[in-house]
Write a protein that binds this DNA or RNA. Structure first.
Lengths: 194, 194, 194, 194
DNA sequence: GATGAATGAGCGTTCATTCAT
DNA sequence: AATGAATGAACGCTCATTCAT
């Protein structure tokens, strides 16, 4: 097989995989994993049902790939926290989190819903667990650097606030005062004076 | 039909309905709504599949009745907040919330999961919306009475903390420091001195 | 539930199960297990696909029940060998075997085909193994009683002749001289004079 | 195209076809025809799925070619029976048959299984029919030459013994006394004294 | 009121076969 | 000659719902 042929195929494969994951993300996010059928995904992706199984061995494996993809995106997003000023880092985190639930509310909903299905999707649970601890530690470090008291517990409270607001935003939708709360939390935690 | 007979039948009906909802609550909580079949519920309730449809027109209507039931229970639970001392009321709320996620984590998980399925279960959404506003107001009132600044926003933050901790507890499980956080939050908000 | 109701249901169940197994036997025999779909069985039995799964948990379990049924029939057939005269017993066996491959050639074919799928259908293999040993012993006993030399080996040879003729009859069909061979074998083994 | 080129291509074609059939034989023998996919064959043969369809129009046609190939091999094997002494010829046949089921039990099983699928694979049936008659005649000739009585019927019995023992060996496996039966049959038929 | 046999649409998945390159 | 991405019909199976009794 010529290298041309090989790389051409690789391109086609990647394109198809991406189309499938795009369609799946959209449908899983809006209707939920259980209520999205393979047929729907295929239709939305503009391909045949069978082709999906050329790339993903099962519906669940597809979900796994999807989650992994999202995680990769987030890892990059965490890199930007290389900064000396802890207040600034904290503020960046707050701003990013708010942007996330503002712009990708549906995706965020999907991940939260899946995380709750502990025994059904162990890999999502593992991922959520690991991520949670990472966030705890990151927030705690900044709080400690700022001199905020009881940094360990407060970090857990802040992380809880994030996820809780995410849910409330999904329930209350446009009437939820995201902007207001963003400013409020930033001034509360990032402008802290001993 | 004699009134006796009528009320006798009514009793039987109510007893059967209660058994069905009990079985459903247990199964929906542990396995999830989608993964629980009508057959399983009938078996657990000790009745036939067909009888369920005598009381509930569909699986979804059964869920609706179940949620309504849970709400009624909670309404009673909210009545106990008739107390003059706002700090005490707030503390009672905190304690009750922690007891709830400690003792009925599974039920709490079920409701959260359903709340996220916005378009699939509109009635759950409506219920969650209404409840959320009620809690906001209740917390806000106490905070205002205590003299806590920015009571409106802080009430939303506290409510978010509750739901966020509920999720984190489900993910981290026994390692999540519920006791510690309970004391921390109570001392932070209920022992507030202007 | 009234006993009437219960026994009535039992009747219905048995009738349905029998119809399903009848249809399955006919189709498995003529087209083979792999080439018979659940839909075909349902159609032939005049019921819906779903009903089959009320009675048999899987296609394979259905086959298992089918085989068990056939075995029960055969067990009864073995009972008639209670006779004092070994020559007569042997002759009865021969006659019964020939009748079997004459009248139920298709069923016999199905069982043989399944027996060959050793690893796929362990229970058929187990059944075949057990039956084979039973036949070996039964034939050997008669031969020994008659005084036929080398009874143990000859019993294995006779059993092999049976299965071999079964295959040849399926291949050659109506031109296979079953009658002739029946007489020939009986005179060879049952009229044996030391 | 030059004759060289032509024959060169022809060589490649033949080599590819042979590799495909080798792979197919191995897989069909071990897993069965129905449970072997074209993909598996292509993988084992080290070629692409599509190429298989360059040589064989369908999976079934591939099986047909495979069976034909096996037959060609056997025809050569029958040629060695050019011998004057009928007892010796008969003994050679016995020995060859036993060697066959000892060494190629899996292939033998595949052919037997296919032969039973009469209507599905007519060409296998035709082949089996033709071969069976050839064997009948060959055995009969030797028996007649030896002076064995009822040679025609006995030939059919011997052929049945062969196929029957083949099946029993597959069922009983290593515990089946092939060696013993080989000696027994040879002494019974080839050392015959009028 | 109560039963459970029966239905059928829909699911996730497989695989022989086709075809553009 | 050779590839493998793509197709689609068919499969075994599930389950909410209906209905005769």
């Amino acid at each position: 097989m010529s290298p041309d042929r090989k790389s051409r195929n690789e391109e086609i494969r990647e394109a198809s995989k991406a189309r499938i994951l795009d369609a799946a993300l959209e449908l899983f996010s809006s209707h939920g994993y259980e209520y999205t059928s393979i047929s729907q995904i295929a239709r939305k992706a503009g391909i045949s049902k069978g082709l999906i199984y050329n790339y993903y061995a099962s519906k669940e494996e597809m979900l796994e790939a999807l989650i992994e993809n999202l995680n990769k995106g987030e890892d990059k997003f965490l890199e930007i926290f290389q900064n000396d000023d802890p207040s600034e880092v904290l503020e960046n985190m707050f701003r990013l989190y708010f942007r996330e639930i503002r712009e990708n509310a549906e995706v965020w909903k999907m991940i939260t819903a899946l995380s709750l299905q502990l025994e059904k999707f162990e890999f999502v649970h593992d991922m959520a667990l690991e991520k949670l601890h990472r966030y705890y530690k990151l927030i705690e470090q900044q709080l400690r650097a700022i001199g905020y008291p009881d940094a360990e517990r407060e970090a857990k409270v802040i992380a809880a606030v994030f996820d809780g607001m995410g849910i409330h935003h999904l329930i209350i939708r446009d009437d939820y005062p995201l902007d207001e709360l963003e400013d409020y939390l930033i001034s509360k935690y990032c402008r802290y004076e001993k």
